[in-house]
Design a protein around this nucleic acid. Sequence first.
DNA 1: TCAAATATGATGCAATTGCATCGAAACAGG
DNA 2: CCTGTTTCGATGCAATTGCATCATATTTGA
Lengths: 159, 159
Amino acid sequence: MVQNKRDPSDAVTDAWVRLVLAERKVVGEIEAELKTVGFPNLSWYDVLLHLKRAPDGRSSPKDIENAVLFEQYNISRLLDRMEVEGLVRRIPFPGDKRRQLVEITEEGRALQRRMWGVYGPAINRFIGETLTEQEARQLAALLLKLMNGKDDRTKNDCS
Amino acid sequence: MVQNKRDPSDAVTDAWVRLVLAERKVVGEIEAELKTVGFPNLSWYDVLLHLKRAPDGRSSPKDIENAVLFEQYNISRLLDRMEVEGLVRRIPFPGDKRRQLVEITEEGRALQRRMWGVYGPAINRFIGETLTEQEARQLAALLLKLMNGKDDRTKNDCS
DNA sequence: TCAAATATGATGCAATTGCATCGAAACAGG
DNA sequence: CCTGTTTCGATGCAATTGCATCATATTTGA
Protein backbone atom coordinates (compact mmCIF):
# COMPACT_ATOMS: atom_id res chain seq x y z
CA MET A 1 0.00 0.00 0.00
CA VAL A 2 1.95 2.94 -1.33
CA GLN A 3 1.08 6.59 -0.94
CA ASN A 4 -1.91 6.39 1.31
CA LYS A 5 -2.08 10.01 2.36
CA ARG A 6 -1.45 11.85 -0.84
CA ASP A 7 -3.87 14.15 -2.55
CA PRO A 8 -5.45 12.91 -5.75
CA SER A 9 -4.19 14.03 -9.15
CA ASP A 10 -6.28 16.35 -11.28
CA ALA A 11 -7.44 13.50 -13.49
CA VAL A 12 -8.57 11.51 -10.49
CA THR A 13 -10.33 14.48 -8.94
CA ASP A 14 -12.08 15.24 -12.21
CA ALA A 15 -13.21 11.65 -12.54
CA TRP A 16 -14.56 11.75 -9.00
CA VAL A 17 -16.39 15.05 -9.31
CA ARG A 18 -17.95 14.09 -12.59
CA LEU A 19 -18.93 10.66 -11.36
CA VAL A 20 -21.00 12.33 -8.68
CA LEU A 21 -22.42 15.09 -10.84
CA ALA A 22 -23.18 12.94 -13.86
CA GLU A 23 -24.99 10.47 -11.66
CA ARG A 24 -26.93 13.21 -9.95
CA LYS A 25 -27.92 14.78 -13.23
CA VAL A 26 -28.96 11.69 -15.11
CA VAL A 27 -30.72 10.09 -12.16
CA GLY A 28 -32.52 13.35 -11.53
CA GLU A 29 -33.71 13.60 -15.08
CA ILE A 30 -34.83 10.01 -15.28
CA GLU A 31 -36.62 10.08 -11.95
CA ALA A 32 -38.39 13.26 -12.94
CA GLU A 33 -39.61 11.47 -16.03
CA LEU A 34 -40.86 8.47 -14.08
CA LYS A 35 -42.58 10.79 -11.67
CA THR A 36 -44.50 12.70 -14.30
CA VAL A 37 -45.99 9.40 -15.41
CA GLY A 38 -46.92 8.64 -11.81
CA PHE A 39 -44.44 5.84 -11.26
CA PRO A 40 -42.54 5.28 -8.02
CA ASN A 41 -38.95 5.91 -7.31
CA LEU A 42 -36.03 4.11 -8.96
CA SER A 43 -35.26 2.27 -5.73
CA TRP A 44 -38.56 0.41 -6.12
CA TYR A 45 -37.57 -0.57 -9.62
CA ASP A 46 -34.18 -1.78 -8.46
CA VAL A 47 -35.77 -4.09 -5.95
CA LEU A 48 -38.41 -5.35 -8.36
CA LEU A 49 -35.83 -6.10 -11.02
CA HIS A 50 -33.57 -7.88 -8.60
CA LEU A 51 -36.44 -10.06 -7.42
CA LYS A 52 -37.71 -10.73 -10.89
CA ARG A 53 -34.31 -12.02 -11.90
CA ALA A 54 -33.83 -14.10 -8.76
CA PRO A 55 -34.74 -17.80 -8.92
CA ASP A 56 -38.49 -18.18 -8.33
CA GLY A 57 -38.67 -14.42 -7.93
CA ARG A 58 -37.36 -14.79 -4.39
CA SER A 59 -34.44 -13.33 -2.55
CA SER A 60 -33.48 -12.39 0.99
CA PRO A 61 -33.36 -8.78 2.18
CA LYS A 62 -29.62 -9.17 2.69
CA ASP A 63 -29.18 -10.15 -0.95
CA ILE A 64 -31.24 -7.21 -2.07
CA GLU A 65 -29.14 -4.99 0.12
CA ASN A 66 -25.94 -6.18 -1.49
CA ALA A 67 -27.39 -5.92 -4.97
CA VAL A 68 -28.72 -2.38 -4.73
CA LEU A 69 -26.31 -1.03 -2.09
CA PHE A 70 -28.87 0.50 0.23
CA GLU A 71 -28.63 0.52 4.00
CA GLN A 72 -30.17 -2.41 5.81
CA TYR A 73 -32.81 -0.30 7.55
CA ASN A 74 -33.78 1.33 4.30
CA ILE A 75 -34.32 -2.01 2.64
CA SER A 76 -36.36 -3.12 5.61
CA ARG A 77 -38.70 -0.16 5.35
CA LEU A 78 -38.75 -0.07 1.58
CA LEU A 79 -40.00 -3.65 1.66
CA ASP A 80 -42.64 -2.62 4.20
CA ARG A 81 -44.00 -0.05 1.78
CA MET A 82 -43.80 -2.33 -1.21
CA GLU A 83 -45.55 -5.07 0.70
CA VAL A 84 -48.38 -2.70 1.57
CA GLU A 85 -48.75 -1.98 -2.14
CA GLY A 86 -48.89 -5.69 -2.84
CA LEU A 87 -45.78 -5.72 -5.01
CA VAL A 88 -43.89 -8.06 -2.77
CA ARG A 89 -44.58 -10.66 -0.13
CA ARG A 90 -42.47 -11.78 2.85
CA ILE A 91 -42.33 -15.50 3.49
CA PRO A 92 -40.35 -17.49 6.05
CA PHE A 93 -36.89 -18.72 5.19
CA PRO A 94 -36.71 -22.49 5.48
CA GLY A 95 -34.21 -23.53 8.09
CA ASP A 96 -33.29 -20.12 9.50
CA LYS A 97 -35.80 -18.21 11.54
CA ARG A 98 -33.76 -15.02 11.51
CA ARG A 99 -33.87 -14.71 7.77
CA GLN A 100 -36.75 -14.32 5.41
CA LEU A 101 -37.54 -14.58 1.75
CA VAL A 102 -39.05 -11.80 -0.23
CA GLU A 103 -41.10 -12.84 -3.20
CA ILE A 104 -42.23 -10.64 -6.05
CA THR A 105 -45.97 -10.80 -6.78
CA GLU A 106 -47.74 -10.67 -10.10
CA GLU A 107 -48.49 -7.01 -9.50
CA GLY A 108 -44.82 -6.49 -8.79
CA ARG A 109 -43.83 -8.07 -12.09
CA ALA A 110 -46.44 -6.06 -13.90
CA LEU A 111 -45.26 -2.81 -12.41
CA GLN A 112 -41.66 -3.61 -13.27
CA ARG A 113 -42.66 -4.19 -16.89
CA ARG A 114 -44.68 -1.01 -17.09
CA MET A 115 -41.89 1.00 -15.52
CA TRP A 116 -39.37 -0.39 -17.98
CA GLY A 117 -41.51 0.98 -20.76
CA VAL A 118 -40.62 4.47 -19.56
CA TYR A 119 -37.32 3.78 -17.90
CA GLY A 120 -35.64 1.90 -20.74
CA PRO A 121 -36.25 4.55 -23.37
CA ALA A 122 -35.17 7.21 -20.88
CA ILE A 123 -31.86 5.48 -20.32
CA ASN A 124 -31.49 5.19 -24.03
CA ARG A 125 -32.20 8.84 -24.52
CA PHE A 126 -29.80 10.08 -21.84
CA ILE A 127 -26.98 7.64 -22.48
CA GLY A 128 -27.53 5.84 -25.76
CA GLU A 129 -27.95 9.01 -27.73
CA THR A 130 -24.99 10.70 -26.09
CA LEU A 131 -22.36 7.98 -26.12
CA THR A 132 -21.45 5.67 -28.96
CA GLU A 133 -21.74 1.96 -28.36
CA GLN A 134 -17.96 1.85 -28.01
CA GLU A 135 -17.91 4.62 -25.48
CA ALA A 136 -20.70 3.03 -23.48
CA ARG A 137 -18.68 -0.18 -23.31
CA GLN A 138 -15.60 1.72 -22.23
CA LEU A 139 -17.52 3.60 -19.57
CA ALA A 140 -19.09 0.41 -18.27
CA ALA A 141 -15.67 -1.24 -18.06
CA LEU A 142 -14.11 1.64 -16.19
CA LEU A 143 -16.97 1.86 -13.73
CA LEU A 144 -16.81 -1.87 -13.15
CA LYS A 145 -13.15 -1.59 -12.35
CA LEU A 146 -13.94 1.21 -9.94
CA MET A 147 -16.56 -0.86 -8.19
CA ASN A 148 -14.31 -3.86 -7.84
CA GLY A 149 -11.62 -1.80 -6.19
CA LYS A 150 -7.89 -1.72 -6.35
CA ASP A 151 -7.36 -5.46 -6.02
CA ASP A 152 -9.05 -5.94 -9.35
CA ARG A 153 -6.46 -6.62 -11.97
CA THR A 154 -8.68 -6.79 -15.03
CA LYS A 155 -6.91 -5.73 -18.16
CA ASN A 156 -8.50 -2.71 -19.79
CA ASP A 157 -6.61 -1.22 -22.70
CA CYS A 158 -7.94 1.14 -25.21
CA SER A 159 -10.08 -0.93 -27.47
CA MET B 1 -34.21 12.72 -33.08
CA VAL B 2 -34.13 9.13 -34.21
CA GLN B 3 -35.32 6.12 -32.26
CA ASN B 4 -36.81 7.79 -29.27
CA LYS B 5 -38.73 4.86 -27.88
CA ARG B 6 -36.31 2.02 -28.21
CA ASP B 7 -34.82 0.05 -25.38
CA PRO B 8 -31.18 0.64 -24.58
CA SER B 9 -28.47 -1.75 -25.77
CA ASP B 10 -26.69 -3.97 -23.29
CA ALA B 11 -23.64 -1.73 -23.27
CA VAL B 12 -25.77 1.30 -22.52
CA THR B 13 -27.68 -0.50 -19.79
CA ASP B 14 -24.47 -1.72 -18.22
CA ALA B 15 -23.01 1.76 -18.27
CA TRP B 16 -26.14 3.09 -16.61
CA VAL B 17 -26.39 0.47 -13.91
CA ARG B 18 -22.75 0.75 -13.05
CA LEU B 19 -22.84 4.51 -13.03
CA VAL B 20 -25.44 4.35 -10.31
CA LEU B 21 -23.86 1.53 -8.33
CA ALA B 22 -20.29 2.80 -8.56
CA GLU B 23 -21.40 6.19 -7.37
CA ARG B 24 -23.41 4.70 -4.53
CA LYS B 25 -20.52 2.52 -3.45
CA VAL B 26 -17.73 5.06 -3.57
CA VAL B 27 -19.80 7.89 -2.11
CA GLY B 28 -20.94 5.56 0.65
CA GLU B 29 -17.41 4.57 1.51
CA ILE B 30 -16.07 8.09 1.47
CA GLU B 31 -18.93 9.52 3.49
CA ALA B 32 -18.51 6.77 6.05
CA GLU B 33 -14.90 7.78 6.37
CA LEU B 34 -15.72 11.45 6.82
CA LYS B 35 -18.31 10.52 9.39
CA THR B 36 -15.96 8.47 11.55
CA VAL B 37 -13.76 11.55 11.84
CA GLY B 38 -16.82 13.59 12.83
CA PHE B 39 -17.04 15.67 9.69
CA PRO B 40 -20.31 16.66 8.04
CA ASN B 41 -21.82 15.35 4.88
CA LEU B 42 -20.30 15.74 1.42
CA SER B 43 -23.01 18.20 0.45
CA TRP B 44 -21.56 20.65 2.95
CA TYR B 45 -18.17 20.21 1.39
CA ASP B 46 -19.56 20.78 -2.09
CA VAL B 47 -21.04 24.09 -1.05
CA LEU B 48 -17.96 25.20 0.84
CA LEU B 49 -15.70 24.39 -2.09
CA HIS B 50 -17.95 26.16 -4.56
CA LEU B 51 -17.96 29.28 -2.39
CA LYS B 52 -14.26 29.17 -1.72
CA ARG B 53 -13.60 29.13 -5.44
CA ALA B 54 -16.09 31.86 -6.23
CA PRO B 55 -14.82 35.44 -6.53
CA ASP B 56 -14.60 36.96 -3.03
CA GLY B 57 -15.94 33.69 -1.68
CA ARG B 58 -19.42 34.76 -2.69
CA SER B 59 -22.09 33.21 -4.81
CA SER B 60 -25.86 33.16 -5.09
CA PRO B 61 -27.96 30.20 -3.99
CA LYS B 62 -29.03 29.73 -7.59
CA ASP B 63 -25.40 29.38 -8.67
CA ILE B 64 -24.73 26.92 -5.92
CA GLU B 65 -27.77 24.98 -7.01
CA ASN B 66 -26.50 24.75 -10.57
CA ALA B 67 -23.03 23.83 -9.44
CA VAL B 68 -23.93 21.03 -7.09
CA LEU B 69 -27.22 19.95 -8.68
CA PHE B 70 -29.36 19.94 -5.58
CA GLU B 71 -32.98 21.00 -5.42
CA GLN B 72 -33.64 24.64 -4.69
CA TYR B 73 -35.37 23.94 -1.40
CA ASN B 74 -32.54 21.71 -0.26
CA ILE B 75 -29.99 24.40 -0.95
CA SER B 76 -32.16 26.85 0.92
CA ARG B 77 -32.27 24.70 4.01
CA LEU B 78 -28.70 23.47 3.75
CA LEU B 79 -27.61 27.11 3.82
CA ASP B 80 -29.80 27.64 6.89
CA ARG B 81 -27.94 24.92 8.73
CA MET B 82 -24.54 26.04 7.55
CA GLU B 83 -25.30 29.59 8.56
CA VAL B 84 -26.24 28.44 12.04
CA GLU B 85 -22.85 26.74 12.25
CA GLY B 86 -21.18 29.97 11.18
CA LEU B 87 -19.69 28.51 8.02
CA VAL B 88 -21.54 30.82 5.73
CA ARG B 89 -23.24 34.20 5.83
CA ARG B 90 -26.14 35.55 3.77
CA ILE B 91 -25.82 39.10 2.54
CA PRO B 92 -28.07 41.16 0.29
CA PHE B 93 -27.54 41.10 -3.45
CA PRO B 94 -26.87 44.59 -4.74
CA GLY B 95 -29.52 45.67 -7.21
CA ASP B 96 -31.91 42.73 -6.91
CA LYS B 97 -33.90 42.29 -3.76
CA ARG B 98 -35.06 38.82 -4.70
CA ARG B 99 -31.59 37.43 -4.84
CA GLN B 100 -28.94 37.12 -2.18
CA LEU B 101 -25.27 36.46 -1.86
CA VAL B 102 -23.85 33.72 0.25
CA GLU B 103 -20.38 34.32 1.57
CA ILE B 104 -18.06 31.75 3.05
CA THR B 105 -16.66 32.66 6.47
CA GLU B 106 -13.20 32.01 7.86
CA GLU B 107 -14.62 29.04 9.76
CA GLY B 108 -16.07 27.80 6.51
CA ARG B 109 -12.72 27.99 4.77
CA ALA B 110 -11.05 26.29 7.69
CA LEU B 111 -13.54 23.45 7.70
CA GLN B 112 -13.17 22.97 3.97
CA ARG B 113 -9.40 22.65 4.39
CA ARG B 114 -9.69 20.23 7.26
CA MET B 115 -12.20 18.13 5.38
CA TRP B 116 -9.97 17.99 2.33
CA GLY B 117 -7.29 16.45 4.51
CA VAL B 118 -9.51 13.39 4.86
CA TYR B 119 -11.51 13.65 1.66
CA GLY B 120 -8.61 14.09 -0.77
CA PRO B 121 -6.71 11.01 0.37
CA ALA B 122 -9.97 9.06 0.39
CA ILE B 123 -10.64 9.93 -3.23
CA ASN B 124 -7.11 8.97 -4.02
CA ARG B 125 -7.48 5.67 -2.29
CA PHE B 126 -10.77 4.73 -3.92
CA ILE B 127 -10.03 6.02 -7.40
CA GLY B 128 -6.35 6.85 -7.75
CA GLU B 129 -5.24 3.43 -6.58
CA THR B 130 -7.78 1.61 -8.72
CA LEU B 131 -7.51 3.40 -12.04
CA THR B 132 -4.39 4.43 -13.88
CA GLU B 133 -3.93 8.09 -14.66
CA GLN B 134 -4.91 7.30 -18.26
CA GLU B 135 -8.06 5.53 -17.21
CA ALA B 136 -9.03 8.31 -14.87
CA ARG B 137 -8.72 10.79 -17.73
CA GLN B 138 -10.81 8.56 -19.97
CA LEU B 139 -13.47 8.14 -17.32
CA ALA B 140 -13.58 11.87 -16.67
CA ALA B 141 -13.96 12.56 -20.38
CA LEU B 142 -16.79 10.07 -20.82
CA LEU B 143 -18.65 11.36 -17.80
CA LEU B 144 -18.26 14.91 -19.01
CA LYS B 145 -19.75 13.94 -22.31
CA LEU B 146 -22.62 12.30 -20.49
CA MET B 147 -23.25 15.42 -18.46
CA ASN B 148 -23.21 17.68 -21.45
CA GLY B 149 -25.80 15.60 -23.22
CA LYS B 150 -26.33 14.53 -26.76
CA ASP B 151 -25.79 17.93 -28.35
CA ASP B 152 -22.20 17.84 -27.21
CA ARG B 153 -19.95 17.00 -30.10
CA THR B 154 -16.63 16.90 -28.30
CA LYS B 155 -14.18 14.57 -29.92
CA ASN B 156 -13.12 11.76 -27.63
CA ASP B 157 -10.86 9.16 -29.12
CA CYS B 158 -8.81 6.73 -27.26
CA SER B 159 -5.84 8.66 -25.99
C1' DT C 1 -47.48 52.10 -17.43
C1' DC C 2 -49.63 48.27 -15.88
C1' DA C 3 -50.97 43.42 -15.80
C1' DA C 4 -49.29 38.96 -16.66
C1' DA C 5 -45.39 36.05 -16.73
C1' DT C 6 -41.11 34.72 -14.77
C1' DA C 7 -37.34 34.36 -11.37
C1' DT C 8 -35.62 33.80 -6.75
C1' DG C 9 -35.87 32.07 -2.33
C1' DA C 10 -38.64 30.29 1.84
C1' DT C 11 -41.76 27.15 4.25
C1' DG C 12 -45.66 23.83 6.09
C1' DC C 13 -46.38 19.32 6.08
C1' DA C 14 -45.71 14.50 4.73
C1' DA C 15 -42.43 10.94 3.45
C1' DT C 16 -37.97 9.15 3.68
C1' DT C 17 -33.46 8.49 5.65
C1' DG C 18 -29.87 8.29 9.30
C1' DC C 19 -28.52 6.78 13.66
C1' DA C 20 -28.56 4.04 17.45
C1' DT C 21 -30.17 0.13 19.32
C1' DC C 22 -32.98 -3.75 20.00
C1' DG C 23 -34.51 -8.79 19.82
C1' DA C 24 -34.14 -13.12 18.20
C1' DA C 25 -31.74 -16.80 16.04
C1' DA C 26 -27.51 -19.09 14.70
C1' DC C 27 -22.75 -19.97 15.39
C1' DA C 28 -18.08 -20.63 17.70
C1' DG C 29 -15.31 -22.83 20.67
C1' DG C 30 -14.36 -23.93 25.20
C1' DC D 1 -24.00 -28.12 26.57
C1' DC D 2 -23.31 -23.32 27.84
C1' DT D 3 -21.75 -18.53 26.99
C1' DG D 4 -20.04 -14.97 24.27
C1' DT D 5 -20.08 -13.40 19.46
C1' DT D 6 -22.02 -12.70 15.10
C1' DT D 7 -25.79 -12.30 11.78
C1' DC D 8 -30.29 -10.85 10.30
C1' DG D 9 -33.97 -7.97 10.42
C1' DA D 10 -36.97 -4.28 12.89
C1' DT D 11 -37.86 0.15 15.08
C1' DG D 12 -38.04 4.76 17.99
C1' DC D 13 -36.71 9.06 17.28
C1' DA D 14 -34.28 12.91 15.10
C1' DA D 15 -32.72 14.93 10.78
C1' DT D 16 -33.24 15.50 6.02
C1' DT D 17 -35.74 15.50 1.72
C1' DG D 18 -39.81 15.84 -1.40
C1' DC D 19 -43.82 18.20 -2.72
C1' DA D 20 -46.71 21.88 -3.15
C1' DT D 21 -47.15 26.42 -2.62
C1' DC D 22 -46.20 30.97 -1.02
C1' DA D 23 -44.25 35.80 -1.04
C1' DT D 24 -41.72 39.09 -3.11
C1' DA D 25 -39.17 41.19 -6.81
C1' DT D 26 -38.11 41.67 -11.58
C1' DT D 27 -38.96 41.38 -16.47
C1' DT D 28 -41.92 41.39 -20.52
C1' DG D 29 -44.91 43.10 -23.73
C1' DA D 30 -49.47 44.99 -24.92
